[in-house]
Nucleic acid binder design. Structure first.
Lengths: 148, 148
DNA sequence: CAAAATAATTGACAAAGTCAACTTAAATGA
DNA sequence: TCATTTAAGTTGACTTTGTCAATTATTTTG
């Protein structure tokens, strides 16, 4: 019986810690005051056509109330604007303002650069294998969490 | 040019989210009120001979003040006791009480079981490859973060 | 159309993380 | 050797993130 399982957990914890630190440094270097969480919000809004608060809560696995407040903040900072959802009067579409888009792109660029450095000595093939294995495990993990 | 980098980040974020949820469920099932963070603290104390607060802050990459307070809490709950460090009067050794050990083992067992399910359809060899690639990337990531 | 479900918001709070100042002891080096 | 610097731990004050429950305005469904 292997003991790789424990390593697995430690590995994930350390990696995510590293990614957070990296993201914070990037924010600081760019003189932007948003936290990694806001970056995630901007990213999803950017990548999602007709993005709604509900969708964000769902995909980021955050509380709906929390998402409401996160959105309020980026709206206050004029990074995001709301527009009516013609299909549902309870809901509103979110999209980046020009300022928001520019912020996002600045961060995304630095973020991509960091990720690229991170995989510098890892070939495309090796990375693909890594992600494939990871995807299997993530899927198992999700299955465990659903039924518990 | 591959676009695997973005996937990489999403993968880590989702996985760590899944692990947190899994750990919370385990806690709940076991009727224990500690959070994943406390589990991490107990784990490190358990695995480290002559564990100190400073060491914990270092290895968990948390603020020293925060660690002090986390320790206070587990000490209050009688899961951990402090004893003088004979080599340094500023410092104290931490170790699990019987109650703490029993808590820890209960959680560790369930945690291991979850990790085992997570890698159910992943061979030892595949997992090893995964961790090797991961270790390379983590090391790159740490290098980036040091010098920034 | 009444009842149930859904999108979003709000209040109130708990947990986690950050920053700086401070105390006590240890290490260093003229 | 003893003043200076460094280190371990603690504390205060604060911000950010996460949680839970209740509420309003719609939409969906039987």
């Amino acid at each position: 019986m292997s003991h790789y399982e424990s390593e697995l957990q430690t590995f994930f914890i350390n990696t995510i810690g590293g990614l957070k630190i990296s993201m914070k440094n990037i924010m600081k270097e760019n003189g932007l005051t948003l936290s990694p969480l806001y970056f995630m919000i901007l990213k999803n809004i950017h990548e999602t056509e007709n993005c709604t608060a509900n969708y964000l809560a769902d995909i980021t696995e955050r509380d709906k109330g929390q998402v409401t407040r996160l959105i309020q903040e980026v709206v206050n900072q004029e990074l995001v604007i709301k527009s009516p959802n013609p299909n549902d009067k309870r809901s509103q579409f979110l999209r980046l303002t020009e300022k928001g888009l520019s912020f996002y792109q600045q961060l995304a660029k630095a973020d991509q650069a960091a990720l690229k450095k991170m995989r510098a000595n890892v070939s495309d093939e090796e990375l693909k294998t890594f992600l494939d294995t990871g995807a299997k495990m993530l899927s198992n993990l999700n299955a465990i969490n659903k039924k518990t």
